[in-house]
Nucleic acid binder design. Structure first.
Lengths: 335, 335
DNA sequence: GTGAAAGCGCTAACAG
DNA sequence: CTGTTAGCGCTTTCAC
């Protein structure tokens, strides 16, 4: 059952009749710095290969206080947005010797706090979090302990932290303007509950500001069970015989639910009702018709976040650092 | 920069004027077993709360040899199939106190070996791997070291290991039969290179066996750059003016590439050319038209894999364990 | 009922 | 150039 015959530095030292220190130094590439002779170093390396020695990083971590691991906490790793983000971050971090511990908070603030605590117990060197917290309490605690972390996608009010995200406000603003320009003046904005997330609030603000004189039409949808709410909203719109109605979904999850309902009812996009969404996903490109959306630069977000954390870990920069990236409007024939 | 004021068991012991042993016992719930008085235990717990003590699991791991972490290695965590799998496995494992270290091998055998080594250095308690290895060498090594692992999705020849996957053969077989039944006798099977993966081979075998008398039409596509190959194949078919041609894609990635090309050329599915795929993804439900596919029971796969590993970790069962799950044919109007 | 002490495998002063 | 020593924070045998 248990793993046997683990070769340690002590075993190498014993066989070579040198000290553990010597072996440690060589293995960690500090041989030259300590003027250890070529021949001794070679001897060590040969033994390392012969015995297939692998350092025990747990022991090293206990000693150095560094685990070379980064915690990534997102709402749901199965969500393509976060999955892609995870992949980008992993690729960026690996060359620096870090690996990722990934967990999903399931959009629950309490779960998230538990995950953060667990990860800290496991001594991850830093945290990247797409947070679902309502307030800044937990992050204040992290800051007071000097724990390196960067918020991604969503920020939290009342606290200055590292943050990488997109300009949700102007994304929603420009999409709304685009709709108005195309003659849509009944723009139904589909927000979600719970609605305290910064992304959701900013998008709604962008929508409202773009409307200016026009009557806002905000509808709230239960994020975890959007179907029923959406069915009512869509029925309401269709029955009221509105001229050129358009649904502006605040995220891809709700937009997919819209598509299902619209298809089930045999409603035509964009003739009967138009549909656009925040957060572009591959599916929108292939759906019938393709759905216009606000695309987020996921790759750049991920790299920036990883980079900010890395810099903080190496003590190289001032904090906090904020990166707000621009979104892109992907125009497709859904409106 | 560094994290300060970490409370240790020694600090609690000092303040309470008891031994570290005592504190450790209580904190690990072994107080009663060692007949430690109620009042002493209470004292310890109060102090733990007062100082907000969190055990250092790295130290614990060094001592116990267990890290409570499981490594998950897949081809690409951004692939919806693996992302979903990761989520399921994480949820299954968390209640047992395990967390997941996730890495993507990018379909490269060498990367995968490096990831396995790194994870072992970091002392993960077990490994779940959707392997891209050509041979069983690495896994023989793991077995000889008694390292617990389970292969998922893809198996490796010439070695008996824990394995959880689907019946790729019968999935492809039944899809092919279904196509024949619908009058398609020009079934182009789109395989991928590299083609040594068990999933790919089994699917091809299922396709071939189902054809019986009919002429097989296998085309190989470069997995990492399918576009060019597919363009040639599709052109070839369209130019040859075949009666009722159908493309059977061996995976979702290639099917998406087909969709892009078919759309770009203005070709109609299923009138001009039909299209079906192995491995159902959400996108197929929404595309125009929806694409029929062989759906894999990802959730069950993930849970089984996690369960098998857990059982091995607790030394509860005989090895190896194999679970081959049934696929489902999702019939949509693409043929 | 409780504690002393050893040690997991490694790194880093410090010594010579 | 190389070695001795002292822990990192925790668990666990053994002893009282």
């Amino acid at each position: 059952m248990s793993v046997k015959n683990q070769i340690t530095i002590a075993e190498i030292a014993r066989q070579l009749e040198v000290s553990k220190t010597l072996v440690s130094l060589v293995v960690n590439g500090k041989g030259d710095k300590h003027n250890i002779s070529e021949s001794t170093q070679k001897k060590v390396w040969n033994k390392v290969k012969e015995l297939n020695y692998k350092p025990n990083s747990v022991a090293r971590s206990l000693r150095t206080g560094k685990t070379q691991s980064i915690g990534l906490i997102v709402a749901d790793i199965a969500n393509p947005f976060y999955a892609r983000l995870a992949r980008i971050i992993e690729d960026y971090l690996r060359p620096f010797g870090y690996h990722l511990v990934i967990s999903s908070s399931d959009e629950t603030a309490e779960n998230e706090v538990n995950l953060i605590d667990t990860m800290i117990e496991h001594q991850v060197d830093g945290l990247i979090i797409a947070s679902t917290q309502k307030d800044s309490e937990k992050f204040q605690e992290l800051q007071s302990k000097n724990y390196p972390f960067v918020l991604i996608d969503r920020y939290i009010n009342d606290i200055q932290t590292n943050y990488v995200g997109v300009d949700n406000y102007s994304g929603a603003y420009s999409m709304t303007k685009e709709l108005l320009k195309s003659g849509y003046d009944k723009v139904y904005y589909l927000s979600v509950t719970p609605d305290y997330l910064s992304t959701i609030k900013e998008r709604e603000r962008g929508y409202l500001d773009a409307l200016s004189e026009i009557q806002p039409l905000i509808r709230k949808v239960d994020f975890n069970a959007p179907h029923k709410d959406l069915e009512n909203i869509i029925k309401e719109i269709m029955n009221a015989d509105i001229h050129k109605p358009v649904l502006f979904s605040s995220n891809n999850h709700v937009a997919k639910a819209c598509l299902r309902i619209i298809r089930a009812y045999g409603i035509k996009i964009p003739e009967d009702i138009a549909l656009v969404s925040f957060d572009d996903i591959e599916l929108f490109e292939f759906s019938d018709p393709p759905i216009a959306a606000i695309s987020q630069p996921i790759d750049r977000m991920g790299r920036f976040a990883a980079d900010v954390l890395l810099k903080q870990l190496s003590g190289k920069t001032q904090y906090p650092v904020k990166h707000i990236l621009k979104t892109t409007l992907v125009n497709r024939k859904s409106f």
